[in-house]
Nucleic acid binder design. Structure first.
Lengths: 231, 231
DNA sequence: GAAAAATTCTGAACATGTTCAAAAAAATGC
DNA sequence: GCATTTTTTTGAACATGTTCAGAATTTTTC
């Protein structure tokens, strides 16, 4: 569990109750009105607590965003499980999981931009490299570990070891695209997913070729460098 | 030139003067104190104008950031020219230009985070895909066109056409790494640059191989898709 | 060069994220 | 069961980004 309380925990039963109340109200308003138009005062008022009390449980407005992120992750995880138990081909597994990610985020298209905005800030606990968010991130990567492990794809061990992280990065890229995608129903994103999943599948085959070993080794070393940025 | 005034232009000579004064003061303070600690009131005060007047010339505090971005780009461009006239090998050219980008940004390490933060927001004119910033971006990509055109590297035409944009994307990635890099003097970033430039050079050779044509075509189509996101 | 129009400039006002000292309530120790 | 300590809760205060109505100034028009 470590420390890293992303928000001041409640130390009492009553406190826990209040905390949950504030969080739920916040997510509701956030979903309904978007980030900018949801004010801390409105959250407090609708929750029936004082402004200061909201700040007692959440260090800042951004904390609420992190809570949102966590929640959608859980939804995505739940939605992915069936597919991960059925599909066996890596390609199909990746296709399903990635699509599900986007459809899970679907209702929050406008609001998700803020999430990414804060994630790009190294000081934000939401940053993909921040130690603070290690827990959430590890969980997210775990999904892709599951995805890889349960497939019958054959590939060199070095690649297999890094693939989950790589796929997580890939899925972050897709989200980034999706945020900028203003096509109706975000069809472009779905097209992109089909396209890139296919490409990735080919690249994995290609990279598994013994002839590619040197390039692959180099590229993988790069990936580990990337992953260790937080230290 | 188009429209896209990133800030309300001055319509008078006096106005132009005031505008420049505010901008220079802002950049000075920004560089000295960072984004958060530089307040609009401080900028106005040090410029000797009223708060409202600052807002007459700059729609928001973020506009100042955009101005900063523009300025560092120009510095980087100037710093790159000598290298681009000397070096002939693509690899060396890329190495020089990328290193220079990081050293140009050097003094603003802390503050650059904000730049990236806003850039990740699709509504920000700083977004790599926003139509608003088309001008600045085109200019930045132009540098890489120059870089590719002046090299004696041989490669297929389809790749050559997209390479400048690809390299621009690459350099954005390096900046992102650099922002998160807290090693002393950002040595890790410089190490990464050496490493990735070498890797890129190999990849370009690899991708130029006729056998690679199908994968290359697929990958390049993806790149153009990416590039057209703003429409 | 005076009247009219446009621009520049000001300072007060507003909204909102955040902090803080202290009151109210709850938990703990004895 | 009272005293003490801890936690929760409050509301006022603060800082800062932003807006706006109007005053001061400059430019344009004739």
């Amino acid at each position: 569990m470590s420390s890293a309380d992303h928000s001041k925990a409640a130390r009492t039963q009553k406190g826990e109750q209040t905390r949950a109340l504030i969080l739920n109200t916040a997510l509701e308003l956030l979903e309904q009105d978007g980030y900018e138009r949801t004010t801390m005062r409105a959250i407090a008022k609708k929750s029936g607590v004082s402004l200061g009390n909201a700040y007692h449980y959440f260090r800042s407005k951004e904390q609420l965003i992190q809570a949102f992120y966590q929640r959608t992750h859980e939804q995505h995880l739940a939605a992915s499980l069936p597919a991960l138990e059925q599909e066996l081909h890596l390609k199909e597994r990746l296709l399903a999981v990635t699509r599900l990610k986007i459809s899970t985020l679907g209702p929050y298209h406008e609001f998700a931009a803020v999430l990414f905005k804060t994630a790009a800030d190294p000081n934000s606990p939401l940053s993909p490299f921040a130690p603070d968010s290690h827990h959430v991130r590890a969980e997210a990567i775990g999904l892709f570990e599951n995805l890889v492990a349960g497939s019958k794809a054959r590939m060199p061990n070095d690649l297999r070891a890094e693939l989950p992280y790589l796929l997580w990065l890939y899925h972050m890229g897709i989200i980034l695209f999706w945020i900028h995608d203003s096509s109706p129903k975000q069809v472009r994103t779905y097209r992109l997913i089909e396209y890139t999943v296919d490409l990735l599948d080919r690249l994995i085959s290609l990279a598994s070729n013994p002839l590619m070993r040197p390039v692959r080794k180099r590229a993988l070393k790069l990936v580990t460098e990337l992953r260790d940025l937080g230290n």
